[in-house]
Amino acid sequence: MSADAKKNRPDPMTPLDDLIGQYADMPPGNFRYCPGCGLGMAQSALMRAFHRLDLDISQVASAGGSGCYAVMAHYFKSNHVHGSHGRACAVATGMKLANPELTVLTLQGDGDCLAIGGNHFIHAARRNIDITVICFNNFGFGDTGGQLAPTTPKGSVTETSPFGMPEEAFDPCKLAIGAGASFVARSTVAHPVHLTKTLAEAIAWKGFAFVEVLQHCHVLWGRRNGMPEAMDMLNFYREKSAFNTAAISEEECFGSPIYEPDGEQDINFVLGVLHKEQRPELGEELAKLRQRVKGDAS
């Protein structure tokens, strides 16, 4: 690689100060995130991913609903629909079909995306519409005070599972693949370089891309489960994660996390691109259909 090419390729860890003017709209006063919240780290990674792709932020449109993450889009210079809880995939589908030039994202929490919005999520994946669904998984409902979600690890304590979560959790990535997503990846806020690269690859992907971002909530989930500090949870992600390599069998890539603090399971989260498969994209298929209908008419 020539020295020039190296210079032009954005460093995944470009200092944030250089990017804020270009991509961010800083809120007056404080951020609405709790101190130490993983969302700020996720937002930094997203901004660096925009930079890595050299995106025109005015051509980025996102959709979101209710949850702690909901204010994130307000802090970007992009366009955003803050819609009703869980329906972001449907809003994004309308945006992308009506204006295919837009780079369309959904910013969703795990409850928003997989509980109330599960139906829209699987159908958007099935259609392979060219949107990127970014799901910030903090193991529960944060905005309402820490209740269980479909991603809450079995056995862990939340406000609505005081005796331990009795249900099995979704593996969001497995669900996405099952529903037909053509790009599926997982990362965590404890792996910022990896997260940045993964988000950039997902946004650049033509078709439905899904990224599960493990984003700690030490305030509501960690505190009740033996990890009261942000660093406790970041260390938890680091210790219990492995990067997806050929050495890991496909079976091991998935599996809903079971919360056993002293359990024998070494690896809870396999990170990386877990699935990639080129399929016809809905918007392009409809464009072809339009041409065909016009051809028939003339």
């Binding site: 449109a61 959709a63 366009n79 629909v81 819609g83 009703s84 329906r87 449907a90 809003v91 994004a92 589908t93 309308g94 945006m95 992308k96 079909l97 009506a98 204006n99 837009l102 139906n119 829209h120 159908h123 409809l286």
Partner: peptide, 23 residues
């Protein structure tokens, strides 16, 4: 563009998504 959504609320949300682009 016509799209058959997965339910009525998805339909109105898709309509909102399209409308914000000026369509």
């Amino acid at each position: 563009t016509y799209i058959q959504m997965e339910d009525e609320l998805a339909s109105l949300n898709a309509v909102m998504g399209a409308s914000v682009t000026g369509v």
